[in-house]
Design a protein around this nucleic acid. Structure first.
Length: 298
DNA sequence: CTTCTTGTTACTGA
DNA sequence: ATCAGTAACAAGAA
């Protein structure tokens, strides 16, 4: 699942690949991926150019050169952006089988810029390169909005980690004002933007806090540890180009490597790397939650 | 066959 | 007002 570090990785890669290239066509294979009509997308995108790519939480938005428009892209759980040009032979992301995936990676099958099984939208640029928007589950979406609509969308997000707006004072006051579980607070995009299930579990482990603790009962000392862990882990994960658990790949179709550094996520039943207790899995805030019963204080 | 998974929103009931 | 819980969305893995 793409969370902040994964979206950041894709954003940075795409900025290298597609900025200032003329969009010559947009092919929509599944129109329910779009929040507006196919015609509206085509009318406004074809002949236009992406001039900037930004990110807020897990949402990417592309500034267009003409008409003050913005393309919004949310990958949800299984969305992918795959970019390819004539140097890179890859089907549009999701292969139809493990074997085919191997073959694609080895360049044995797949025509130049061929759509994959889960390709939903294809952007074609003036230099013949293509950008595939793939999504297995059809939860991901694209929208095309003006400045006012963009502002409305962005205003709903909470504080953005890894920016100057992420201050301990604000973070702590968010925690102090909620009685809900600390994990629910970390996951709430309206409070803190960009943290999903993987990084919520990881930061809680690093900070030594049980996921089901009421947020307002987290001590200032623990909150400080959490605050530092959030910054550190997100930054580290960006360095490692994200975490690949099931579907996440970057815009070149390659997996992230932060999995190596995961301490609890996906490690249920295995020994805690710190104290050798068995990592547990429960449900907190409606989400699968992994934790160490000894290292994390309740 | 059922159950679980994931992000987000919307809803219900306390 | 606030919060917890759950359904919904889709599709595949176990």
């Amino acid at each position: 699942m793409p969370e902040l570090p994964e979206v950041e990785t894709i954003k940075n890669d795409l900025a290298q690949a597609i900025l200032n290239k003329k969009i010559v066509s947009i092919k929509v294979i599944r129109k329910n991926i779009l929040r507006k009509s196919v015609k509206y997308f085509q009318d406004n995108l074809v002949g236009n150019k992406f001039v900037e790519i930004n990110r807020r939480g897990k949402l990417m938005y592309f500034n267009l050169e003409k008409d003050d428009l913005f393309l919004l892209a949310h990958l949800r759980m299984t969305g992918q952006f795959i970019y390819c040009n004539k140097d890179k032979f890859i089907a549009g992301g999701h292969a139809n089988s493990k074997k085919e995936e191997e073959q694609i990676l080895q360049g044995q099958v797949g025509d130049f810029c061929q759509a994959g099984k889960y390709t939903r939208v294809i952007f074609e640029f003036g230099d013949k390169s293509k950008l595939f928007f793939n999504d297995l589950r059809l939860f991901a979406c694209l929208d095309l909005v003006n400045k006012a609509e963009l502002k409305k969308v962005l205003d709903r997000f909470g504080i953005e980690p890894l920016t100057a707006n992420f201050k301990f004072k604000d973070f702590f006051s968010i925690l102090q004002n909620r009685r809900s579980k600390i994990k629910a607070v970390l996951l709430d995009q309206h409070l803190i933007a960009g943290i999903g299930n993987i990084y919520a579990d990881e930061t809680l482990f690093i900070a030594g806090v049980m996921p089901d603790r009421p947020a307002n009962e987290v001590t200032i000392k623990e909150a400080r540890k959490l605050f530092i862990a959030i910054e550190k882990i997100l930054k580290k994960s960006i360095e490692y180009r994200g975490t690949t658990f099931s579907d996440y790949v970057d815009s070149k179709g390659e997996k992230g490597s932060f999995m190596k550094l995961l301490k609890v996520y996906g490690r249920q039943g295995q020994e805690c790397l710190k104290c050798k207790s068995i990592i547990q899995k429960t449900k907190v805030a409606g989400r699968g939650t992994r934790f160490c019963p000894k290292c994390q204080k309740s």
